[in-house]
């Protein structure tokens, strides 16, 4: 039976890339699928050209091609990543770090409730820290992408999620955003209520923990997670 050569497989990888499958993990699966389909066609009709057989196989993916598969793969990976964040958060709560977090929160609450203009200062510090963390994440992402391009490395969806998902900490900036926009007059931190003082202290502490988990702890373990998510990672590297 006529089989695909290594050169054909390279063409198939290029084909998937041209159809917006940018990550090696998904490319590999689709390449094998297309290759199987082409070989099956050759088993029936050996004179069929590689290009024609590929066109026939690709048509089976429907009018949207690989688009739906890519989107749903990303959604499934996000779900998996959120589970990892949840696991780390649970571990954090059960560790000594939790005691440090509670102590840190208590110090912030003491600061916002006892120091004159403490809430306003905490708001300013928290917001500055939040912006700095976003800058840190964006710089990290750019470094990662530059390195990828220079080394022409294979792209892994889950790896990019770990590097990029630090942007998820952006959600924690919502109170600051709301304060600046919607609640500008409702939450005036120059004359804060007890609720506002507690709220801003606790939220700042949570932002720090979230940043620590998403941007420091999880990326440190990226290799382990990638090996668990991708059995092909070891084969490809």
């Amino acid at each position: 039976m006529k089989k695909l050569t290594a050169a054909h497989i390279d063409v198939l990888y290029d084909f998937t890339r041209k159809h917006y499958v940018l990550h090696y993990d998904l490319q590999t699966e689709l390449v094998d699928h297309l290759a199987n389909g082409i070989e099956k066609q050759w088993a029936r009709k050996e004179e069929l050209t590689f290009e024609n057989a590929l066109t026939i196989e690709f048509k089976k993916f429907g009018v949207f091609g690989f688009t739906e598969i890519i989107d749903k793969r990303q959604a499934a990976m996000h779900k998996r990543y959120l589970k990892i964040i949840g696991k780390h958060a649970l571990q954090f709560m059960g560790s000594l770090k939790m005691a440090a977090f509670m102590l840190f929160t208590a110090v912030l609450i003491l600061f916002t409730t006892n120091v004159p203009s403490g809430t306003l200062v905490m708001y300013g510090l928290g917001f500055a820290g939040y912006v700095a963390s976003l800058v840190y994440i964006v710089v990290n992402m750019r470094k990662y992408r530059k390195k990828q391009e220079q080394e022409n490395s294979k792209r892994w969806m889950f790896e990019e999620l770990i590097v990029n998902y630090g942007m998820g900490t952006g959600v924690l900036g919502i109170p600051y955003y709301l304060h600046v926009t919607t609640f500008n007059h409702a939450m005036d931190f120059t004359a804060p209520s007890t609720f506002e003082s507690y709220f801003i202290a606790i939220w700042t502490a949570l932002t720090v923990v979230m940043f620590y988990l998403v941007c420091i702890e999880i990326p440190k373990m990226a290799g382990n997670y990638l090996a668990a998510v991708y059995p092909e990672y070891a084969v490809a590297k």
Partner: peptide, 19 residues
């Protein structure tokens, strides 16, 4: 796979990786 109902492994078959 994401929900843990299936697990994956790969094998090198011919010139390609199969999942």
């Amino acid at each position: 796979e994401a929900s843990g109902h299936v697990t994956v492994f790969v094998k090198k078959v011919d010139n390609r990786v199969r999942k």
